[in-house]
């Protein structure tokens, strides 16, 4: 028989734990679920902090989005960047992982270094790349000094070059992450599989296609999904590198939402665009992850 004091002590412990769990859930509800609902509600209004009264305007914000050229440009930019960076960073990650997948000291040092871009904040990364890419920056100075270019090239100053430059910087950052994921995936491939392949005389590209690549599938799923989500909500690198310019050409949807809400004071419309970005993120994440998961099974 348990004595009453033990039971009482145990019960108070149960309550304490439940209280802590409830506190965590409460914080999540207040600072994530509630803002989400408020944002949804606000997307049906013409809310504006400069106006005394806000009215429900039904779906007007959503119909306005259909004819918004800035929004369309921002979505195009965001999706090109997201898919471009995801493909490039994952290709580089696989290549890097294959190259660095050895265990001697020199390779371990290189692996450590390869992850460094992930450790620095986007703000620092963007400032360092800005000194390289800006009009009178280090790259143009070097290229002009070496007489490769006659005059500085606007790496960040023309729309197409700026898209490319941002893609380059974000790919650079994401590659550190994808490399580590693919390295782990490579090391989870049973060694016996490779020994068997050697005995059967399967080598080189064939071995990569038939054994390594299919065995990397779980790593690919996680690496591709996280790359996509990260780029879809990217804010700091673009803000520092170009601020959305030139002429809004690098204004991602995330930047557009913040501009609408904090600079144009169009809170209602900003909320509607935010709902759209949320929907696109969810759709992309779910379909791509689903497809990659099915691929894991079929390979």
């Amino acid at each position: 028989m348990e004595d009453r004091r033990t039971v009482r002590k145990r019960n108070s412990g149960e309550r304490g734990l439940a209280l802590l769990a409830a506190l965590a859930l409460g914080l999540y509800l207040v600072f994530l679920v509630l803002p989400l609902l408020l944002s949804l509600r606000s997307s049906f209004t013409n809310e504006n902090p400069l106006k005394a009264q806000n009215d429900f305007i039904g779906l007007a914000n959503y119909t306005e989005m259909a004819g918004d050229d800035q929004l369309r440009a921002s979505l195009t930019f965001t999706l090109i960047l997201a898919f471009g960076v995801t493909i490039a960073a994952n290709a580089l990650g696989v290549g890097f992982a294959l190259l660095l997948n050895r265990t001697s000291l020199s390779y371990r040092v290189m692996r450590t270094v390869a992850f460094l871009p992930q450790v620095l904040s986007g703000v620092i990364v963007a400032f360092v790349w800005q000194t390289i890419l800006t009009q009178n920056g280090l790259l143009n100075t070097a290229l002009v000094n070496l007489r490769i270019l006659d005059e500085p090239y606007p790496w960040l100053g023309s729309p197409h070059a700026a898209l490319f430059s941002i893609g380059l910087v974000v790919t650079w950052v994401m590659s550190g992450f994808t490399t580590v994921v693919y390295l782990a995936a490579l090391q989870s491939i049973p060694l016996e599989l490779h020994d068997m392949a050697s005995l059967d005389g399967v080598r080189g590209t064939q071995r990569f296609r038939k054994i390594t690549w299919p065995m990397l599938a779980p790593g690919t799923t996680i690496s591709v999904t996280i790359s996509l989500i990260t780029v879809l909500k990217l804010y700091d690198i673009i803000t520092v590198l170009t601020g959305g310019g030139p002429a809004n050409s690098t204004q991602s949807t995330a930047l557009y939402i913040v501009k609408l809400a904090f600079t144009s004071d169009r809170v209602g419309y900003a909320s509607a665009v935010a709902m759209l970005l949320l929907g696109i993120s969810a759709l992309v994440a779910l379909t791509v992850t689903g497809a990659l998961r099915r691929r894991e099974v079929s390979l």
């Binding site: 600072f31 944002s39 939402i257 809170v267 970005l277 969810a282």
Partner: peptide, 14 residues
């Protein structure tokens, strides 16, 4: 998965 821009403004209001 939720982009932080989506909940930023209501969070400040709360």
């Amino acid at each position: 998965m939720i982009p932080p821009q989506v909940i930023l403004l209501p969070t400040i209001r709360i």
